[in-house]
Design a protein around this nucleic acid. Sequence first.
DNA 1: TCCTGGATTTCGACG
DNA 2: CGTCGAAGTCCAGGA
Lengths: 230, 230
Amino acid sequence: MEPARGGMPCGADWQSQLNRAVIVLYADCEVYYDGRASSRANRAWRLIIIKPDGSLLIHTSEGYQPLNWQPPGSRVTILQSQQGGLELVAIRRRPREMVRIRIYEVEWACWGGLPSEGRFELRGTHDDLKLYIANNIGKYLPGGRVIGIEYEVPGFGIADIIATTPPDGAKWVIEVKRQCADLQAISQLKRYTEALKAKGLLVAPCFTSGARELARKYGFKLVEEAPPPS
Amino acid sequence: MEPARGGMPCGADWQSQLNRAVIVLYADCEVYYDGRASSRANRAWRLIIIKPDGSLLIHTSEGYQPLNWQPPGSRVTILQSQQGGLELVAIRRRPREMVRIRIYEVEWACWGGLPSEGRFELRGTHDDLKLYIANNIGKYLPGGRVIGIEYEVPGFGIADIIATTPPDGAKWVIEVKRQCADLQAISQLKRYTEALKAKGLLVAPCFTSGARELARKYGFKLVEEAPPPS
DNA sequence: TCCTGGATTTCGACG
DNA sequence: CGTCGAAGTCCAGGA
């Protein structure tokens, strides 16, 4: 095993970094969670990440998702038991939830302040597609005119786009999905069209077979359209 | 800065651990993502986690969610450029997506094999609540009898529970939510009840105001019930 | 493989 | 703070 480099911010002093740096522990531990649900994880080696914003993540060797976690805003505390045993407790209010980690051994602990956050830009989102459609409404509803975006239908939710088409000024509800539209998307559109007595148009890059079938029953128009290149 | 402990699996040799151990890097880097959407993250210090199952996580100092990621099954490779620059590339098929990390500096790198996974039990889930209701149907629909669980309504989806009640054998669709039911839950139930010409019962620990209102319009019965204690 | 719906979903926006 | 709907959602289960 290669020796650690000098000056590496790793060691036994990780506890002093709580609420200051991102701390990463490689530890043999048990994990308890109680709140909206509850879970128990038997003793095993896991990766524990504690962020200064109160986020807590417990990762195993598999998967995108953590085994247990606590979102930002949690209060993270370290408890020392008599036998040198360590406990990490993260508590969150609203909903009242607790993650408790019984630590048997820490093989290594490292941390870093992550001083600069950098800029982050994401493109190809639902908003991008929605605005593109609103700005090119004629492509989807010939002669159409946009009446509203994020249009609130009181008691029924918020429709992506409302438009009218000639010659009779028919009203349309347009629901936009950036991924394949499914039954749920159809139901959502149905809710708005029923409330507004409007026609329905669903724009998505693809549609599940069930969505296509149900859309036909409801008389919805479907248009395949992927998020615009950016 | 406290010196690292001897024998700690940290050091420059982390690349040899690819696909074998969980690797954690504290690195100054830029991140590029292209796939269903695309993103660019400017140069900054971040936490990079590479799992042997092909998962890749890039975390900042804030938040539960990673800045960028790749789910399990991705192919992770390390590229060396001439100037000693390092690039981490994770590619996924279906959907075709790529995360590329340009690494300028690695302050520390540690890893662990996470040999034993341990047992994990979660209680208080949707399934738990659903089965509890099915097994105590009389509490929700007096005299009721369960006809089916996870009952497929062809072309309309899968209903949680189907039941009948005396004296006329009225058919009910029961939708179960383990969290506060919202408009979407109402729409989902509406979809099933319309298809089956059945009555609707929604069981959830709470309901949003909009959900309550819409349920009344649709004539649905609402029952407040939290997941059972376990 | 696709389809469907849950998740301790988390997250952001708006009223 | 509640309500609403998206997310690069991920994930499991069934056909």
